[in-house]
Design a protein around this nucleic acid. Structure first.
Length: 210
DNA sequence: ACATTAAGTGATT
DNA sequence: AATCACTTAATGT
């Protein structure tokens, strides 16, 4: 755990804090598709992402999903802080996109550390800023990009967080993430393939133009 | 051989 | 871009 911490957070968090994280945090490996945070639940722990990727989803009244963004290693879910302070329920769902390693920190500790460690405060604020930027980006994508561009962006993002150009995903799963229908995804994928941006193989898609 | 699941296609709104 | 209806291909039992 120490090496992990040092590697991913050592440069931005002070040594004393890293020590505390080591003592208090619980190292956990989660399998792919594991739900880390569910909508409407209280958040008791905040996850520090060591490796892997997490996707953040929103849900409408009918239970339809919409992907907001991916979180990569060295970051965290800043929402857990506000939620804990206001003892609110989570507005989002966090699902492990890949197999991931996380360190769980009780939210009470987060509060303490806010006043105790400058680097922690900065880390959290920076994380907020990053999330906000990604949210704005997500809004732009949904509002201004046509479905074909959205789909291609989705594939590129997915390839990036997976560190793999070959995406193992069904058309239906893509459609769910993008909140559209499978038929549309199939058709757009075909046109993307014809324009040489991707290649489709059986049960996986290769992103060519990164 | 049959059922199930993923993906392709045409037509309609 | 969504939905329906139908087909085809691949995979599992």
């Amino acid at each position: 755990m120490h090496e992990n911490l040092q590697h991913h957070f050592g440069y931005k968090l002070e040594d004393e804090l890293l020590k505390e994280i080591q003592e208090i945090g619980v190292l956990k490996k989660v399998p792919e598709n594991d739900i880390l945070i569910e909508i409407g639940t209280n958040i008791t722990h905040m996850p520090l992402l060591i490796d892997g990727a997490i996707k953040i989803l929103r849900e409408d009244n009918n239970g339809q999903e919409l992907l907001l963004y991916f979180i990569e290693q060295g970051d965290t879910c800043a929402m857990s802080l506000t939620c804990s302070l206001a003892s609110n329920k989570s507005e989002i769902r966090a699902v492990a996109e890949t197999q991931a390693t996380i360190i769980l920190i009780p939210v009470q500790k987060m509060e303490q550390w806010m006043s105790k460690y400058k680097s922690w405060r900065q880390f959290i604020l920076q994380s907020y800023q990053d999330r906000l930027t990604e949210l704005l980006d997500a809004i732009d994508t949904i509002a201004f990009l046509k479905m074909d561009a959205r789909l291609f962006k989705y594939l590129k993002d997915k390839a990036m967080v997976n560190h793999n150009d070959f995406l193992q995903v069904t058309h239906q799963e893509i459609a769910t993430d993008l909140h559209t229908s499978r038929v549309v995804v199939s058709r757009l994928l075909k046109s993307l393939e014809q324009s040489g941006k991707i290649k489709m193989h059986r049960n996986n898609i290769q992103v060519v133009q990164l």
